[in-house]
Amino acid sequence: MAIIPLERKPLSLAERTYLPAILSGLKTTFARLLRPIETMEYPEQRPAIPPGYRGVPTLVKDPNGREKCVSCQLCEFVCPPKAIRITPGEIPADAPTAQVEKAPQAFEIDMLRCIYCGLCQEVCPEEAIFLQNQYSMSGYTRAEMVNHKDRLYELGGTLPDPHLKWDKKKAAAEHGNTH
């Protein structure tokens, strides 16, 4: 890389007194003084969350109320600060969603570690984890800052599912190419 020496232009007498610069600065700040306030008074006023905002990661259910996560642990794998911890579990064979076979026994996201990067949402093959609108997350203890499975579903709610792949799988098992 070449170094380009730049000649500094000599300052004029007026510039060397800095007075014009200070006066223009005073003008700027005084003009500001008269302008309306820019900030938002936070707890009363809330910002409008733009689409695509990456808030607190949450788990979602599909419109039929099925928990979408199958505990494949890809989010746990991809999570850069290792905030996610999943204990996989099996869905019993007599459950209504037995065709899914696998669901998380425990799902914890440590919000003290989470960096809101959204890689978990990106990597999820089941579209089960979403970073939604929740931007304010606080607690009094470290333990409070760990979101457990129930809380994650509570935060996540239900999102529309255009695929319903497991329902299709069940339908195929019931009416499909069986023998």
Binding site: A93, A172, N177
Partner: peptide, 10 residues
Amino acid sequence: IEQKNVKPKR
């Protein structure tokens, strides 16, 4: 595009 085979899973 046809239906996949269905076989016993467990």
